[in-house]
Each structure stands twice: as C-alpha cells, then as structure tokens.
C-alpha cells in the first residue's frame, strides 16, 4: 500500500464516527420514506424496504398539498435571498470602499442585532404585519427574512470585499470606467464567490426558518415546508412516520444538492482572502 493510500484510509477511519452520526438520520429518513405504512410498525425492523414504495411521496404531493408548501418555501427563500443581496451588496461595498464617519460603530451595531433572538421580536413583527394587512402574505416573510439575515450578509460580504485590492478599481477608473462600470466589469466578477456563499447562507437560513413562518402564515395553503412537516405529525390517532420522513427528505435534499454542487465555490469563498 502506498503511503498516500494509507493516509487516506486512516483519515477515513478517524472520520467514520462523524460520518455515521451525520448520515444516520438521512439513512433513517430514506429507509422509512420508501416503506409502505404497514412495514414500519412491524416488530423486526429492516433497513432495506421490501419494495421501493413511492406512494408516500405521491400521497404528500397530491393529497396533502406538500408541493404547495415546497413552492411557498422556494418562493420565500429565493425572494429573501434576492432582496437581501440587493441591499447587502451595495451596503457592504460602501462599508468596504467609501470613507464614512461612524463606520466602526455601524459594524458593531450590525453585530449586536445578531445577538437578539428572532423569537423575542415575533409578537412585535406579527402586530406590525397585521397592521399592514400582510398576515398570510408570503411577501411579509420575504421582508422579515431578508431583514434578519441581512446583517450577517453585510458583515460577511464586507470581509470578502476588503480582500479585493482597491488598485483594480482605481486602474479601471483611470482606464475611463465610471464608478458603476468599474463595479460591474471589474469588481463584481471578482467577488462572485463571496456573493454566492453569502446568498447561499441566506437561502438556507430562510428555507429552514420555522418560528416566524409559523406565526405569519396562518393558512394551510400558505405554509412553508418546515411548518407543514410539523403539522403532519399532529394526527390524533397515529403518527405517520412514512409520510413525515418522505416530507423531511423532500425538504432537505434540495439544500444538500445545492451545497454539494457549489462546494468548490464555497471553499473558495469561505477561505476569505485566499483568493489570489
């Protein structure tokens, strides 16, 4: 065995407990979601279903309106991501590039807002949106989510923007580019990894958010996926694990796929400043 192979074997060996802990819930989810209801409540549990039963998914989508919930979630998360990016990118650019008084204080203020739990604010938010007649309106959540995750986005983007040399924009200005043109042609292409990572964080946070969605969206048809899943458990006589697991699978897999597909970008973006 080459030393490289041995090294990777040792690494995997050391990591395997963690891998098991991470993958166990997924395995349970997958195995349960693919089983028929009758097969779950048997005495002898098997990992492998007798047959790959897709009825749970069909039931979810066609009988229980889970498709609508996924769509709601997607709509809100994409909306929140776009809105928060649209505000956070210019804000972070200004913090990183322009000379302004009170910059440090503003940064600290952003940090402090992150220390307040959203739960504390929910009653106030509910009253506010009720006043504007926006209860059951997904746009209320788009606004609330983007507001909540914006501070983090600004903070993170600024750190990333600070690593991009100012020389490059200055060179562009001397080449004759206006500030806007230099921003679009020179600055944005270089900070794309940072923007992608930040947008992804906002998306995932918004996708998983529960308490606010539960409060603002009262109608069954406007519920988001995490809320819908919670409601699936509440049948009086039985807990339909097969349905719940199918739903959680549908809610988590898209996020996992996004993460995996832009993994390279992520690593680049997270190792701030390592971009050369």
């Amino acid at each position: 065995m080459t030393s490289k192979a041995r090294k990777s074997l040792i690494c995997w060996g050391a990591l395997s407990p963690i891998v098991v802990v991470i993958l166990f819930p997924y395995a349970t989810m997958l195995s349960t979601a693919l089983k028929h209801k009758d097969e779950i409540f048997t005495f002898e549990q098997t990992w492998w279903p007798r047959e790959f039963y897709l009825g749970n998914f069909a039931d979810l989508l066609f009988e229980r309106g889970f498709g609508q919930a996924i769509f709601n979630s997607l709509y809100i998360s994409v909306g929140a991501t776009l809105l928060s990016s649209a505000v956070a990118i210019p804000a972070a650019y200004a913090l990183s590039r322009l000379r302004m008084p009170g910059k440090g204080a503003f940064r600290n203020y952003l940090l402090i807002t992150q220390m307040i739990s959203p739960i504390v604010l929910i009653i106030g938010l509910f009253r506010m949106f009720a006043y504007f007649g926006m209860i059951n309106d997904p746009h209320a959540l788009i606004i609330a989510h983007s507001a909540f995750y914006m501070a983090f986005a600004v903070w993170m983007l600024q750190s990333y923007f600070d690593t991009i040399p100012k020389d490059l924009e200055e060179a562009a200005w001397l080449d004759g580019a206006s500030r806007t043109r230099a921003f679009i042609s020179v600055f944005l292409p270089l900070c794309l990894p940072g923007v992608a990572v930040t947008a992804l964080f906002t998306f995932v946070n918004s996708w998983n958010e529960y308490a606010m969605s539960l409060t603002m969206l009262r109608d069954a048809s406007s519920q988001t996926a995490p809320v819908k899943i919670a409601f699936l458990t509440g049948t009086l006589y039985e807990t339909e694990w097969n349905i719940i697991m199918a739903a959680t699978l549908m809610a988590t897999v898209p996020v996992a796929i996004i993460f995996a597909s832009i993994q390279n970008y992520l690593v680049r973006g997270l190792s701030l400043g390592g971009v050369k």
Partner: peptide, 20 residues
C-alpha cells in the same frame, strides 16, 4: 475632475491587472 476624465494612464506598483 474625476480620474476617468483626466486622460492619464497609470502603472501601479502591484500592476493591478484585472485577474479575470
């Protein structure tokens, strides 16, 4: 007058070439 309108060309110590 902004740097765009001064019609000057500058060579930076870091060269400042656009990486992309």
């Amino acid at each position: 007058v902004g740097p765009q309108e001064r019609d000057l060309a500058m060579v930076f110590q870091s060269y400042a070439l656009y990486p992309h």
